[in-house]
Structures are given as C-alpha cells and as structure tokens.
Design a protein around this nucleic acid. Structure first.
Lengths: 198, 198
DNA sequence: TCCGTTTGTAAGTGTGTACTCACATACATA
DNA sequence: TATGTATGTGAGTACACACTTACAAACGGA
C-alpha cells in the first residue's frame, strides 16, 4: 500500500507528464489541423504547447504517434458533441434526433479545428496507423448516429454525406463569410442549409 | 509568314517541351494523388515521368505551380467525364441527367487518382494558389451539373454531397474490396448505392 | 555547315526537420 | 538530508528535399 501526499498549497514548478500530454494534444490538434501532417513540424507543435521539442518526443514517441493521438482526441470531441446533441433533441423520433445531431455538428464548424483535422487525416490515410485511427473514429461516429437516431441506413448515409460537404465548404472557406446575400450562386448551392455559428 | 517543316519520318531524339509537359503532368497527377502535396518530392515526379528533376523545374517553375497544374488537369478530366456522362443520358429530364453524371463520376472511383488528388488538394488549400484552383475547378463542376441537369439547387447540392462521400470511402479504401457481402454494417451504411467499377 | 535556340542532365547548395542524447533541476520518499 | 525518479532542456546529427547552375547535346533554319 502506498500513500500519496497531495502537494497542498505546493509551489509546484513542474507539471505532471499527464498534464503536459493534455496541453500538447490540444496544441497538436490546432497546429496539425492548420498545416496538415507532413507540413507541420513537431517543433511547431512544441512551441505552440510551450515546451521543448525534445520533450514532445519523450511524451509521444514520434511524430506519427503524436498525430494519431491528436486524431483520436479529435474524434472523441466530435463523438461527445454529437452525443450531447442527441441528448438535447426535443423528441426521440429519428428526424428530431438527426436534426439535433446535425445542429451539433454544424456548431463544430466554428471550431474549424475538428473538421480540418479530419480533412488532413484523410489526406494522410495512406499511413496505416492514421488510416486505422480514421476507420476506428468513423466507425464509432456511424454507429453512434445509427443507434441514437434509429434512422434508416440511407438516411444515416445522407447525414454523413452532408458532413463531408461541410468539410469541403469549410476547407475552401465558403462558409466563413456572411451567411448568404452576395455569395456567388454556385457557392450558395453548396452552402445552402448549412448552418454556421460564430 | 513562316513555313514549318514536319520532321516526316524524322529520327527525332528529343521530345518537345509540350510533349514533356504532358508526360510530367500525367505523372504528377498520379504521384501527388498518392502521397499528397507536401509528402511528394519533385524528384519522385521526375522519376515517374522518366526525366531529370532539374528539367521539371524548368518546365513548371516550382513545386507549387506543378501541383496546381496537375490539379487543373484533374478538374479538366472530371469535367470531361461528367459532360460526356450527361451527353449519354437516356433523356433530358433532371433525374436522368443526374443519374448519368453520377454514373460517370462513380466510374472515376476506379481511377482513384482523380478523386484522391482532390482530397490532397483540399488538405493543401491553405496555400492560396491551390485554394484558387480548387475554387475554380469546383465552380466549373457545380455550374456544369446545374446547367446540364437543370435540377433544383438542393438536388445539385445532394449530388456533390454524395461526391464528397465518395472521396471518404475511396480514401479509406472501403470500396475497393468486393461490392457488399461480408463488409461490416457501418461500412455498408456509407458505401451502399455507391457504384464501383473494376 | 554554321550558329542560335531548345532540350536535357548531373552535381551541387542551403535549409528545414525528425529524432537523439547528455545533462540539469524538481520532486517524493525513506 | 540523501537518493532515486520524473520532468525538462539545448545542442547536435543525419538526411531529405526545393531549387540552382554549369554544361552538353540535339535541333533547325540560313
């Protein structure tokens, strides 16, 4: 049996490895989502996290593992958001649950990070580890939407097709400007009905 | 007035710059679609094209311009394919034309290149030149589908949402295997109805 | 046949970056 | 207080790659 003494009002200088991992992961999601896997240096993630490059390698092993960990975190947060959205649905009918989940996903567009990291990961999916994590994350999302909405398969498919369209318009920056109005007509075709929150 | 003499049965050793550009572009589409913008070296494109790295730089200026040229070529080929598909439609009704275009796009899945290069370009879209070419290409495709099908805006949007779903399942390799049968249920949800040709 | 132009290469150069390692200091426990 | 462990850094290494340049050979018109 081991006793742990809490450092009460401790003047603790250093963080625990666990705390650092959290900080690094948050920074990694942000930086990787902006520049992608290959164009992002581990050093830039370290700088964004406020620690040295060497320590990032000690914490995560190598760049690939860091990216995969960030991707896993990304899917976790999306899963949570969709799940919470489903909980907030006004009824348990398929349509209501799907609408609520779509609303929840649309709100993530504001946090470009989570959408863009998926885009970056898809582009890096020829790496087996990245691909494996993508499959894992996508499977969990599809099963979540299917199980919570109990909608027909074709309806669930449409939900994810819309989601992929969100990725396109977000990556191309078609939806960051004013909602409608003076946008070109072809842009409106792609963005109509895609809700965007500031 | 200038007279041109065709090298008849000429024992021409060297290609013209135009011919080389074609060969390099074809190779660039293939290689960039596999490894993406940042992970692909200009040298690997040169090797695939069978010429020296230095000459590729002479022909295209720099890596960015090479990638953008490959992307433009990619959109050209997709545009042609969709246009030809529309021509082959059994009737001029919106549904028939859209179906024919969807079929034409589905046939491109077999040539993974054109789909994957779009995925790679989307990930590299923070580069202004890449983003500009993506916007140009996407605009031409949206307007083509809208004008040829004369379908409602929402229907055209659905067409492109399905297209984006194609990119996901192609990039994750969910559709390269046997059509259906023993695939996991969540995979079937995403791939059902997406035609795949060998 | 001469000569300017086009086609083509090989061997650089400089920079960025993935990853390592020696070393130092904070921390917790006995 | 002594000591082992966890936290953290900075400098260094090796290598890949974007891009340049000097040079050579083929072409084609006069």
């Amino acid at each position: 049996m081991v006793e742990y003494t809490m450092p009460t009002t401790s003047a603790r200088i250093r963080s625990t490895a666990g705390e650092r991992r959290e900080v690094v992961l948050t920074a990694a999601v942000r930086v990787f989502s902006q520049s992608g896997y290959h164009a992002t240096s581990v050093g830039s993630v370290a700088t964004a996290a406020g620690i040295s490059e060497g320590y990032v390698f000690r914490l995560f092993g190598d760049k690939q593992k860091l990216f995969v960990a960030a991707l896993a975190r990304c899917f976790e947060r999306i899963h949570e958001a969709l799940s919470a959205g489903a909980d907030a649905a006004p009824s348990r009918r398929s349509g209501a649950v799907l609408d609520a989940m779509a609303l929840a996903y649309a709100k993530l567009i504001a946090e470009r990070e989570l959408l863009m990291l998926q885009v970056q990961a898809l582009a890096a999916a020829d790496d087996p580890a990245v691909r494996a994590e993508m499959l894992r994350g996508q499977q969990r999302l599809v099963e979540l939407v299917r199980d919570r909405s109990r909608a027909a398969d074709a309806t669930v498919q449409k939900f994810f097709a819309q989601g992929q369209l969100c990725h396109l318009v977000t990556a191309l920056g078609l939806v960051t400007a004013a909602p409608d109005e003076k946008a070109e007509s072809w842009v409106r075709i792609l963005t109509d009905g895609i809700r965007h929150f500031e």
